[in-house]
Design a protein around this nucleic acid. Structure first.
Lengths: 195, 195
DNA sequence: GCTCCTTTGTTGCCTAAGCAACAAATTTTC
DNA sequence: GAAAATTTGTTGCTTAGGCAACAAAGGAGC
């Protein structure tokens, strides 16, 4: 979206990718807390000092991993924004649920710590996505920009909260039913702002 | 075999592998003559100048590709040397035939030029392999070292000649029969040197 | 023939990555 | 709970790789 014309050194790109891939690979057999920076560097075929030149620690790394992963996932799912708030919110809930189960499927049990890091990043990405969507597709011209930002923040937390509730507690319930119950609440928050 | 304790910079290792892999990938869709150094560098995500720091040109690259490939192939096939000259020669012929067909299978038609480069490298590897084999496993103590070297040279060319003949002309014939016909000639050359 | 365009090697300067050694924190082991 | 062993960040110096610009050598097209 943003025409970031900042040229990145190809070595930097390659190294970051190597590190990201290394972590993904390691998480198939070890827990996140078990993995050491040493192992990551080794698996990435880079020097440990180089790791620290890119990430302050392994938590910063996992932040980026989740962020990139979820962003790509979302982009692929939402090539063009759904045409109504209802459909948009449905799509978001679907995406979060699928992404979460995918992550937990291919990475050997993450431990709570990992989950909370992931949650932070995903909410951040959601807020950004919703913000753009609000700006482009919802006619709330009468609403001030700051109001929209607050709405985006609130919605991102709400969406995640609902999705997390299903993931952790209500998983026995059918996902589609759950989504149908949840979406009206979210859409309601938006409609409430329309004058 | 040789305890080469020369430490190689990990960047060098990685770059060489990237270049090798890039060529293999490109050869799936293009002919060797069609591939440019530019494309190789791009596919390897390295700079063109870096390519030239490693290989004088793409012919030197393919030399190494074949050499490494055939060496690994041979090592995997001959974990322990077969116990008799007959079996050793059988194994060699088998290996060459299989390797050749494998190469031509996964790389889109190589053109004659490629074949002649490959031939040179394979014969070189064969000579080295045979030399070691002669030194360790054949009791020709009475024969001078220079004589052995000559024998190794001759055998490498002979083996390749026979294999190539089958690959290019006699492919209709059953490989096993062909090998059975050929091996006595090779073994004969060795036996002739025994006093 | 001629031009235009691409590919090829080469060079000097700049930047990212490797290394070794370090102190500080953490975990393991007995 | 003390000693031993890992792991963690950090640092200064070395080296491989990126970049841009160059001359030279094909090709393709007219």
């Amino acid at each position: 979206m943003l025409g970031n014309a900042v040229k990145i050194d190809p070595r930097t790109k390659r190294t970051r990718k190597l590190i990201l891939d290394a972590l993904i690979q390691l998480l198939r057999t070890r827990t996140f807390e078990e993995v050491t920076v040493n192992e990551i560097a080794e698996a990435a075929t880079i020097n440990r000092a180089t790791f620290y030149a890119h990430f302050s620690d392994k938590y910063a790394l996992v932040d980026e991993l989740i962020r990139d992963g979820f962003m790509m996932f979302l982009d692929r799912r939402m090539q063009h924004y759904p045409d109504t708030p209802t459909r948009y919110m449905q799509a978001l809930l679907w995406a979060i649920a699928d992404h979460w189960t995918m992550i937990h499927g291919q990475c050997n049990q993450y431990h709570r710590f990992f989950d909370s890091l992931a949650e932070t990043q995903i909410k951040r990405m959601l807020e950004q996505h919703i913000q753009t969507w609000l700006d482009h597709y919802v006619p709330l011209r009468s609403v001030a920009a700051t109001q929209r930002q607050l709405l985006a923040t609130m919605l991102s937390w709400s969406v995640f909260a609902l999705a997390a509730r299903w993931l952790y507690s209500d998983r026995c319930q059918n996902l589609e039913n759950f989504i149908n119950d949840s979406v009206p609440l979210l859409v309601g928050s938006i409609e409430a702002l329309k004058v």
